[in-house]
């Protein structure tokens, strides 16, 4: 039964998560509310691992979340369900048109969704902040890390490693 639920939920995410990168995160936070597959703190750890291991983040998150919910089979099912809508839709597009150009209505819908997706990510970010920023030293590190990201624009892995060292040194 968990397998079926995983399939349905991740199929929905594949269909509704429009854009790239972290867009799957808010949908996964909804799942953390709805099922006992993983906690929001575990999800936050998953984001860190997905950012610092190879592979598209969305796929990594699905495999990780599915594995946490129902083991190896859960990871495979969640990943399969996540990519299925993309595969079907892209095959249809490739089949229907030699040179596909965006339909005006489709364009309206998807460009209108983007500001809403931004709100979703902000809302998910606030939930991560509630878990991560528990005291004033944490808030100080947050501000410092963010400032470094804006100035130097290095790979996220650099900052994640630095933060791990800070966590161990300061016993956060």
């Amino acid at each position: 039964m968990t397998y079926l639920l995983l399939f349905v939920e991740f199929f929905k995410i594949g269909l509704f998560a429009i854009g790239g990168g972290l867009v799957t995160v808010p949908f996964l936070f909804d799942l953390a509310d709805k099922y006992d597959w993983f906690s929001k703190a575990e999800l936050t750890d998953m984001i860190a691992v997905s950012e610092s291991t190879p592979g598209p983040i969305g796929v990594n998150m699905a495999t990780f979340a599915g594995f946490n919910a129902a083991g190896v089979a859960g990871g495979i099912i969640a990943t399969f369900a996540l990519v299925l809508p993309s595969v079907v839709i892209m095959i249809l597009i490739a089949k229907m048109m030699q040179k596909y150009s965006c339909n005006q209505r489709v364009h309206d819908v998807l460009s209108g969704i983007r500001p809403a997706v931004l709100a979703l990510i902000l809302f998910a970010g606030l939930q991560v902040a509630k878990i991560a920023l528990s005291g004033s030293i944490e808030i100080l590190f947050f501000a410092g890390l963010l400032a470094m990201m804006r100035i130097w624009r290095k790979s996220p892995i650099v900052y994640l490693c630095l933060a791990a060292v800070l966590g161990i040194v300061f016993r956060l």
Partner: peptide
């Protein structure tokens, strides 16, 4: 556990960083 407490702070900062870029691009 200590390392992940630090890493979670970084995840919050990464999300804030992305929100800033997305806001500039999409609003």
């Amino acid at each position: 556990a200590y390392a992940f407490a630090g890493i979670r702070i970084c995840v919050a900062a990464l999300i804030a960083d992305i929100i800033y870029d997305l806001a500039k691009k999409n609003i």
